[in-house]
Structure formats: C-alpha cells, structure tokens
Write a protein that binds this DNA or RNA. Structure first.
Lengths: 182, 182, 182, 182
DNA sequence: TTTT
DNA sequence: TTTT
C-alpha cells in the first residue's frame, strides 16, 4: 500500500457520553465516541479565566469498536490516535453538509482507577494479527508499576561507524495472538 | 495558559491552491490553505490501484499567515502541526453548518528545490515574542529556542540518581529575535 | 528562528522515581525525570505473556521544571512532548559516552485522582508569556468534566471558495498570564 | 498485543550517509540509517546565525529495511515515525554502553524530485501481512487500509445522538496485497 | 554524516 | 483543488 502524505491526529480527552456501537449487515462493529479536549487560560485584559472546549467526533471499527463499547463510558479519559476524514452527506432538508471525523487507529484508556469493567489497557486496530508493537505504542490506563530507573544510571558511549562485536539483535516477533486487547 | 487534553494534528501534504491571505480590521493576517493527503492501495479483489485523497482546511494567524502567503503556493509540499477546531456558522440559506479546521501552530516547507521566493524553511506561530521552544520542536520560524553549537559538548551527569560534579548545563536562551522566519 | 527538520517525541508513561530538581548558578531550575513505557504481548510460540519496559530520561527547564518538582512524584502518570537530544560526556573512567534525552516542551499530568499537591493540570514551557494555546494542546489531568456532545449532532456544509457572510473570526489572544500552570 | 504507555517519535530530516543493510542468520533484513534534524537561529547577543544539528540513529526491520536499502541514500529527506528503544551493549574495551535508537514503524520519502530508483513513496513496517492501518496513517508501504474513492461520498448519520436511517458505511478492507511498498 |  |  502506498501513500503520499501524513494524516495524523492525537487526542487526549474525555468521552462526552457513552459510546454508541452498532453493527453493519455483515456484523462488523462500528463505534462512535465524542471526545472533549479543553483549554483554559487567563484573559490578560479581564483577568478572567476562560475555557474553550473542543469536541471531536471519533469512529472505530471492528475489534476496536467492540472494545470501546465494552470498556469505555461517559467521562472515560482516553488517548486516541487516528486520521482525519471528512464525509459529505445530505440532511433531511436536502442540504449538503460535511462532517469531519477521526478514524481511530489506536486507543488507550487513561483512567488510573478503572471500574469493574474497565481494567485499563490498550486497544489497537490490528485485527490482521500482525505485530502491533511498533504501531501500538500505547498502553495502559490501569495501574502501571513504575520500575527503578536503573538503566539511565549508566549512560554510554556508542560507536556508529565501526560497531564492535554485538550479538544478534532482538527483533520483535510478529506472530502473536491479537485477540486480547489487554 | 492551562489546558485539559491534547488536541494535535500532524499533516504532510500538498496545497491544492494558492494560499488565501486576508486581514482583520486590526490588521492581523489570516491565511487559509487547503492541504491534500492521499493514500493509494491495490484493491485485492480487482487488482486495481485505488486512490483516496483527503482535504484539510487549515488556518494560520499573524506572522505565520504572512509567511504562508509569501512562500507557499499551489502544489507546495508542507509539514503542518496544529490543533482541531470546529466552527459553527450560518450560510446564506440560513442553515447552520459546522466546519472543522486545523489551526496551524507549526509549518515547514518540504519542497527540496524551492523556487526563487521559496527558500525553504520553517515558520512557527509565535508572533507574541514569547518563548516558542515548546511548539517549534526541531525548528521554528517564529521563535524556537536557540541552542549554541557547544551544547552537545556540554558534559553531563554521569549517574542519574546521584549526579556527580558537572559543569553548568546549557539552557536555551529565550530572548532572541523573532522576526526572521528562516 | 529557523529550522530544517522535525524532532518530536510523545510519551505517556509513569515516573520511575521522584523528580530530581536542581538549579543552575543563575537560579534556573532543571528537572530530570525517568519515564517508563511498557508493552506486553503474548508470545505466540510459548503462549506466555511477555513485557518489555522502556525507560526514557527526560529533562525540563525553568518554570516547567519547577512544576515537575512540585506536582509529580514516583508513579505519576504523565503525557510528555519534547525533542530528542544526545549529549556526549566523559565518565570518571575517561571513556566517552553518549546519553539520549527528551527535552520536555509540554507535560500533562494524567492521574485522574490527584493527591493534595497534585491538582492535575498542564504545564507548557512558555515562560515568555506568549500565547500557549497553539502549542499547549494540553489539558488536564484532573477532573475533566465531559459536556454533552451537542455539537456534532448537526454536522455541516462549508464553502471554502466563496465564504458567505461570516463574522470576524476569533483569534486567540496572545497576551495572557502564563505563570499559573493550571 | 497490549501495552501501557505511548512511545512515539516523529522525525523529518536527511540521511547523513547511505543506509546500512544487513541480514540476520534467518535472513531478516535490518537497516540502519542516521537522520539529521537541525535548527538554526539568530543569536540575539552576537547577531550571528547559529546552527545545531541533532543526529538520530534509526533502525528498521524486514520489508521496510529492504525498501530503505533500495530507495534511500545519503542526503535523502525522510519522514520517520517510530519508537524509542535503548539497548545495552559492551564495547571491545569491556565497558558497558547504552545506545538509544528509533525503531522505525513508518517511513515516507520526501524528496520531491526522486531519482530513477527513488520513485517517492511510503513504507510501513507490516511485513507480517497484518492490518497496518493503525500505524500507517494516511499512507502505508506495508499495508494500510484500502479506502475506495467512493468513501467520501458515503452518506452519514445526520444526528449523532439519534442516528436516522443511513446506508451501510464503508469500512476499509483488511485483506490486500502487502508486498508492494508504493 | 545530512540539509539549507 | 494537490501530489505521484
């Protein structure tokens, strides 16, 4: 597959309402969620604190749509990565309109104290079974256990030009089960 | 300035037409550009090569708008970083409509062989003269953080946990000329 | 300021230890934090669940460094945006080494239930007082109040070529107080 | 595949030298490239123009590595998306060192006037044949989601809260040839 | 080591 | 409406 351009959206925000999940005739799940991102600032002239909320209509398909329906709800905080897509449609009044949506590729729950059905985790749209490590740089809303920072305690030299003996590099395995989102 | 959420868009694409630059009553420049990102793929069933183009309406203000008007033209390839914003407006038919735009924060020209007036370069929206280092990552037309070439050579903590004696680190200066985009 | 290239890093992870904040001779704050991002996957061959944690050494300056020192602690979940920088240094053994760090531009706390001193919020490095709205597409770690998704309920048409009567666009103010991170 | 965290790098820069491609014992291609991103700025005090170049060591595997070896060369301008990974290794002097690399997930050539063998295009790392839509946003060498040109025309829900009758939405097909990078 |  |  080829491409000429980059079309990438990254959001962190909260769901304004519960996800809406529906199914196509051939049983493919489609989830719609509305995510709010907001900014607040102090107006220099009035001294007041202002807030501007932006709403983003997002869409996910297949397994990711099911996960959204199962684990997200109104108020959930999420990280979303996707691409912009503007659709043309016609209202009942016959007027043509356009809607811009974010087609979700990656999603991660950011609620640190997930409720029962919200164990926190990650969900990438990689139903093909391919290695998702590179693209799914996501991860978890739940209880991340920070480990001691022993690694960066010993920064290091490196020689790019004439690498010395190095063992076979670890290359991420591509074949692994992809059905369990987290 | 404060904020709750991340609202980020990254595009690489080509301008579908020359930029449209106009000015507000208090002489602030506003530039509108339309950027195309496209994907092509081989249809598995038919074997045909298909293409899908997505158009993105982008807006820039102030100095960045002026730079756009001066250096970009139809066909120009650009990197754009910004945030999504949906505006509500009313057409002449009285129907309410919404338009989603990308408010450009950073822009970089990617044409390797720029024409006369297109010397290639970068432009970040920091016309206020403030420190723009945060937004202009890796470059910056309006005001990125200057970093002396001596920085790399600046010695460093050997151990993160218990830093040993180290010289003063170089910290990017914040005050520098902001008028020259590139 | 000009630039040729993009150098951007986006992380979401947890602090492996409390921040380390120190000051230069001219009293500029510098904060070092170590952020963990991890991936888990199911090994297809063994069926085991594997986990790989990556540690990222991050640095912030000035106001952002102070905020980090004040509000973050071991285990804090954060969103970080910055740029890569590799420094060369010499260990006590006389060997040259290199350390790659992320110079933080933007940071957002993602802990939904902040403790006393952790009210949740955002902190961008824009000490110059410029409008940070464009760059600080951040938003908040605290209690984001999702609003009803009434907006996207009425998607819309838009006419790019010949805009009809539209009021003066809202252009974000650039001058506002920047001292209060959230 | 699961994950806890986001670990994302986005670069636009030029190759400092020709790619180095080698093969593992089981014939997996590995490509190493070094990418420069640079910033220039005008020193406020001296008035001089300063430049700072940052070098990024990047690695790609499998099909993406082969594409890199075939189409990129010294000086090529590229967009790269990947994740940070720090490896520990031991030099011939027995000293432990660390090297931070960007594991490339997506790559796009940005040279507008490609030479003979450089037709310009995109390459995503999805050699496993899995669906790569998530990582290849807006394009994709290894396997992005095909989207028929009819998609934009696909009608849409008029009301998000209470969707009216709407035709089946187009959902990107997942199964398509993955061998042709562009 | 690139690029402008 | 761009680009290849």
């Amino acid at each position: 597959m080829a491409s000429r351009g980059i079309n990438k959206v990254i959001l962190i925000g909260n769901l304004g309402s519960d996800p809406e999940v529906r199914y196509t005739q051939n049983n493919t799940a489609i989830a719609n969620i509305s995510i709010a991102t907001s900014e607040t600032w102090k107006d220099k002239q009035t001294g007041e604190t202002r807030e501007q909320t932006e709403w983003h209509r997002c869409v996910a398909y297949r397994r990711l749509a099911e996960i959204i329906g199962e684990y997200l709800k109104k108020g959930s905080k999420v990280y979303v990565e996707g691409r912009l897509q503007t659709r043309k449609w016609q209202g009942q009044d016959g007027v043509e309109r356009y809607t811009t949506e974010i087609i979700i590729n990656d999603l991660q729950m950011l609620d640190s104290r997930p409720s029962a059905g919200q164990s926190g985790g990650y969900a990438g749209q990689s139903s093909g079974g391919g290695y998702a490590g590179q693209q799914n740089q996501g991860f978890g809303g739940g209880g991340d256990a920070p480990r001691p920072a022993t690694q960066q305690a010993t920064p290091v030299a490196q020689n790019f030009q004439q690498p010395t003996s190095q063992p076979e590099p670890f290359i991420p395995d591509q074949d692994f089960d992809d059905d369990i989102p987290f």
